[in-house]
Design a protein around this nucleic acid. Structure first.
Length: 578
DNA sequence: CGGCGCGGCGCC
DNA sequence: AAAGGGCGCCGCGCCG
């Protein structure tokens, strides 16, 4: 059963059940209650234009829904997918104008993202002034149903309907989960974070001042470089000062600084480490992003070309290991921290149906198994070789090891090589479930065209080959990273579904309150890793849910293919000890 | 003054 | 020795 919902210009919300021919309008202020009622009664798939317009306010009103179809995200997938080569007769291939572009479709803006409704507004469905004057079709529940039908027809007429159906369901579930992660927040102990900062940087400085540890290091750096006026934060000043001191560096990158013996190096590297901590996750970050012992990130589901998520502030996907001790469970609660070990190489083995590589992926440590199979000499080499194969390394240690890997695992290598060749030729490549890569930009095609002219200079040809290879490395990685993202989305969605079944009436309330106050729930997702915040007495059940969902994700994507996706899983009070 | 590209670096 | 995918964010420095 499906129900489409849309807001009208008159501050009302329309509910349309096209199969039963039921159409209902309620005042916006009553919408959450109506959705709660229909959810309890029918558990429909909610069809809406954009999950970001609905889920945050529903959650704030204490309402969760199980399933949705996000027309914006699904429309973006279908628009690009090579599995949808030609729509069936009578079905339009193009999305309607009113449907906003997907988050990863840079520059495709037809309709700007609905900024006003993305804002975490008041808990109830107040009449939103920005949306009070809607454009015709975009606010019509009938138009949503038509668009949903169009998308379903594209799926049904595609080369891989089952795969696309799974992908669209997973993508839509991801959008719901992104909103729920924000609502729940990641448990964050401000005092722990402050302890980390003070241990590294010294006491919090006044506004406009540097932490004293950094000031002291800057004094030492200036002395060592004999540059009393040096502003250490200025990359260009620093590079000049280093060269004036006779240090032959071409950049101020730390890997390059590591190459040189000089009294300035130790304080300089330490300064850079502290500067990074201060600017990325210092006191200002705490003030901006942590409130009520919760870090509320803005996740962008489907935010990257490969289907991985992005974030739009707070840097939730780059939490440095140094501050993860601040991620700690509430009293009476615990964290279930799980990550899929070596996900991408396992996905590659399954995707390519490479029996030998799948065999190496049977155990917990795939890299070790590759060494044991005699392919390379050390675990570190196995890792470098695999990364090199997936990323397209041609030089250095990694590139040197790739041929050995190719001999042992020809099918896996052939899959990524094929993806690279497709990209170099300007073709799309496609993941297991049907997400396709974008086409290269017009400038890329122009370079290729220029190089194919009879009078093309060697420089132009070189530039074109380089651009082609760059795009080939992107598409080479796309199939693996994108399919791994699909596995992770299925895992995440499976965890969510299972967790909603776990709850206990006498569970202590978490500090967050609201819809998650007594049940284990997801609080973090990072590509191949997730965290569940769980009442202690439900931790075992939550851990089982996480494991079961991983096994199910493997079956959903790869059926009975002989590949395993083992988890590293810890039930722990804080993230740093996972 | 704000916008933007870039170097640098954190995460996967 | 410093390569090779996907991101976001910061400060700097340049530009209009």
């Amino acid at each position: 059963m499906r129900i489409a919902i849309a807001t009208t210009g008159a501050g009302r919300v329309v509910f349309l059940d096209p199969e039963r021919g039921e159409r209902r309008e309620v005042p916006a202020a009553d919408a959450a209650a109506e959705i709660r009622r229909l959810e309890a009664e029918h558990a429909p798939r909610w069809v809406w234009r954009d999950t970001r317009e609905w889920a945050p306010r529903l959650l704030a009103s204490g309402v969760r829904v199980a399933r949705a179809h996000d027309l914006r995200l699904c429309g973006a997938i279908l628009a690009a997918s090579t599995a949808v080569p030609a729509p069936p007769a009578g079905v339009a291939h193009d999305r309607p104008d009113w449907l906003p572009p997907g988050p990863a479709e840079a520059g495709a803006g037809v309709v700007p993202a609905p900024v006003a409704s993305v804002d975490r507004g008041p808990a109830l469905f107040d009449l939103d002034p920005i949306r009070a004057a809607p454009t015709h079709e975009s606010e019509s529940a009938e138009a949503l149903v038509d668009e949903h039908d169009r998308q379903l027809a594209l799926v049904a007429g595609s080369e891989r309907p089952a795969a696309l159906r799974l992908l669209l369901a997973a993508e839509s579930a991801g959008a719901l989960i992104a909103a729920e992660l924000h609502e729940a927040g990641l448990p964050w102990r401000r005092v722990v974070h402050e302890r980390v900062l003070e241990a590294a940087l010294g006491p919090r400085p006044g506004v406009g001042r540097k932490p004293e540890r950094m000031e002291a290091l800057a004094v030492r750096i200036r002395a060592a470089l004999d540059a009393p006026e040096l502003r250490v934060d200025s990359q260009s000043d620093l590079l000049r000062a280093l060269r004036a001191a006779g240090i032959g560096v071409d950049s101020t990158a730390k890997w390059e600084l590591h190459e040189h013996e000089h009294p300035a190096m130790e304080p300089l590297l330490e300064y850079k480490r502290l500067a990074r901590l201060l600017t990325a996750n210092g006191w200002a970050w705490l003030d901006e992003w942590v409130a009520g012992d919760r870090f509320r990130a803005d996740y962008v589901a489907g935010g990257t070309a490969t289907g991985r998520w992005a974030t739009a502030g707070g840097g939730a996907l780059q939490l440095p290991k140094a501050i993860r001790a601040a991620v700690a469970a509430d009293p009476g609660w615990t964290l279930v921290v799980a990550d899929a070990a070596q996900l991408e190489p396992r996905v590659l083995a399954a995707l390519a149906r490479d029996g030998a590589m799948a065999e190496a992926g049977r155990g917990r440590d795939m890299y070790r198994a590759i060494v044991d199979a005699g392919v390379v000499a050390t675990r570190e080499e196995a890792k470098l070789a695999l990364l090199g194969a997936m990323y397209g390394s041609t030089t250095g240690d990694s590139g040197r090891l790739v041929p050995q890997l190719a001999r042992a695992y020809p099918r896996a290598m052939a899959l990524v090589d094929r993806a690279a060749r497709d990209g170099e030729a300007g073709r799309r490549v496609t993941t297991l479930l049907g997400r396709s890569s974008p086409l290269p930009p017009a400038s890329w095609h122009e370079i290729q065209a220029a190089a194919s002219q009879p009078d093309a200079t060697a420089a132009v040809e070189r530039r074109a080959r380089s651009a082609a290879r760059d795009w080939g490395r992107f598409t080479r990685n796309f199939v693996v990273q994108g399919t791994a993202a699909e596995w992770a989305l299925c895992w995440l969605a499976g965890v969510r579904t299972r967790l909603t079944a776990i709850r206990g009436a006498d569970t202590p309330a978490a500090a967050s309150g609201g819809v998650f106050d007594r049940a284990p729930h997801l609080v973090y997702f990072l590509h191949d890793e997730l965290i569940v915040h769980s009442p202690v007495e439900h931790a075992d059940a939550a851990a089982d849910a996480v494991r079961d969902a991983a096994a199910e994700a493997g079956r959903l994507l790869f059926g009975d293919a002989p590949v395993e996706f083992p988890l590293e899983l810890a039930v722990t009070a804080d993230y740093s000890s996972a």
